[in-house]
Computed example of a mutant assay.
Amino acid sequence: MGHDQVVTSKGNDHPGNGPAVSREEFDALFEALRTWGRWTPADRGACNRVSPEHVRRAADLVRSGTVVPLARPWDTEPGPDNARPALHYMSELGDAEAPEPSVHKDFLGADYHGKAVSHLDALSHIAYRGRLYDGRTAREAVGSRGARFGAVSALGPLVTRGVLLDLPAVSGEKWLEPGRAVHAPDLVAAEEALGVTFGEGDAVLLRTGRLRRRRERGAWDLDAASAGLHVHAMPLLAERGICVLGGDGDSDVRPSPVDGVRSPVHTLALAAMGVPLLDNLALEALSAACAEAGRYAFLLVVAPLNVPGGTGSPVTPVAVL
């Protein structure tokens, strides 16, 4: 299958991207959504919203026991959406003379922040105007040995209520075309159509149909064009008090509608709101499972690697219906 060609416009005039946002408007929005100083420990950010009671209520959502993994396969092939392919090679093949039993070992490695690996972004991943979440100075908090604040190891495992906002299922499209911006009214309309409401302590997962489009049309450069949230949708997510935001892309619409800020949703979520992100999830099977079950809320389990100083981690989130 050949690679799909996605035609994009330069700047903020991409069709369907929505209104352009000036740097001054974005800075005002950043200040309005800041939750700095709200929680202890600060580097868990919005995950502090998830109490034992949240976990108990999420567990009550398990009815059929259907388990749906949400990670993409480990992608070792280069392509327009995989500039730094993951590594997988055999480090021992059991062919050397040694006592029984023979042993087979393999090595895995990835520069996982990108468009190919399903991963979690910790709060140390993004700084805006030199500051991480909670106002920590990035140059002081993140160095060659990793992050001393906002590391993925501070987050630990997350168990909470997940909500899938399946936008193509609502619109009747196969997918949202690259460059399509999702606004707050789109999220509310999806809630109404799907019979679900997201709220305090929830993890919201946004399906745009990216992987279905990739399967049918081929890969494309997601930095050039991808469907995702417009920054004007973020106040709704902040008002509802979500703990995690994720999707089958990286949540940002591209091209960016904000002058001079290439990943404005990342910036608002991580650096202002303290909301970790789940990028590049595999949501096609979850879409089918939710449609079959007739419900779009489920138990969600996310267990990142315990990497001291890590700015994130590859993950295999699991939804249980």
Rank of each mutant, 00 (worst) to 15 (best):
G312Q: 06
A282E: 15
W36D: 15
A190H: 02
R57H: 10
A184V: 06
V62K: 08
C290N: 07
L283V: 13
S251N: 09
G241V: 08
P101D: 08
G312D: 07
G274P: 03
P168D: 11
R56W: 07
P78E: 07
V55D: 02
P80K: 06
Y89K: 04
R129W: 02
A272P: 02
G246H: 09
V163G: 04
S64C: 05
E177A: 14
A96Q: 12
A151C: 09
A46P: 01
A58F: 06
P19K: 12
L300W: 11
R262V: 09
R212T: 14
G195L: 09
D259H: 10
R44I: 02
S102E: 11
L300D: 05
S51I: 02
V163P: 02
P52H: 08
R63F: 06
R23Y: 10
P314Y: 03
Q5N: 11
L167S: 03
G162R: 07
R56E: 15
A59K: 13
S171P: 00
C243W: 00
D95H: 11
L176M: 12
A282M: 12
V6S: 04
D259E: 15
A293G: 10
R213T: 03
G130E: 10
D250F: 02
G310H: 04
S313L: 06
A184D: 11
M273P: 02
K174T: 12
V103R: 14
R44T: 03
N48Y: 02
T76E: 11
H232F: 04
R129A: 15
A98T: 12
L300S: 06
L167F: 06
G135I: 06
P85G: 07
D75I: 00
L278H: 11
C290G: 05
A303W: 00
L286C: 10
E173S: 14
V7K: 09
L206E: 02
S251K: 01
V301M: 09
D134G: 01
L165F: 09
L206P: 01
R136W: 12
P78T: 01
L93V: 12
E97C: 04
Y112H: 15
R210F: 05
E292K: 15
D95I: 14
S118N: 05
P314T: 09
Y89G: 01
S287Q: 11
K174G: 14
H3T: 08
